[in-house]
Amino acid sequence: MSFKQRVVKYFNNHAETSENHWDSLLQTHYYKTTKDKGLDTVEQFFMQSDAFKINAVSKEHGELSVSVVKGKKAFIVVTIIMVRPYQTAIDFSVTTESLLPFDFAYSSRLIQRLYNEFNEIFPLIE
Rank of each mutant, 00 (worst) to 15 (best):
M1E: 13
M1P: 09
S2V: 08
K4Q: 15
Q5T: 06
R6E: 15
R6H: 13
V7T: 11
V8L: 13
K9C: 11
F11E: 02
H14R: 13
A15C: 12
A15E: 08
E16G: 14
E16A: 13
T17L: 10
N20Y: 11
H21D: 04
S24P: 13
L25Y: 15
L26M: 10
L26A: 09
L26T: 02
Q27H: 09
T33D: 07
K35C: 06
K35W: 02
G38M: 03
L39G: 01
D40V: 05
V42C: 01
V42W: 01
Q44F: 14
F45Y: 10
F46Q: 06
F46C: 03
M47H: 13
M47C: 07
Q48T: 08
D50F: 08
A51F: 10
F52V: 04
F52G: 06
F52N: 02
K53F: 11
A56Y: 14
V57W: 01
K59E: 09
K59G: 06
E60G: 03
E60M: 08
G62F: 09
E63Y: 10
E63S: 10
L64F: 09
S65G: 03
S65R: 05
S67A: 13
G71L: 06
A74P: 08
I76V: 07
V77P: 01
V77W: 04
V78C: 07
T79Q: 09
T79F: 04
M82T: 14
M82W: 01
V83L: 13
V83G: 07
P85R: 12
P85S: 11
Y86W: 12
Q87G: 07
T88Q: 00
D91F: 05
F92H: 04
F92E: 03
S93H: 12
V94I: 10
T96F: 05
E97N: 14
E97K: 14
L100N: 05
D103Y: 01
F104V: 06
S107K: 08
S108D: 02
L110E: 02
Q112F: 04
L114F: 11
F118R: 00
F118P: 00
F122S: 10
L124Q: 10
I125K: 04
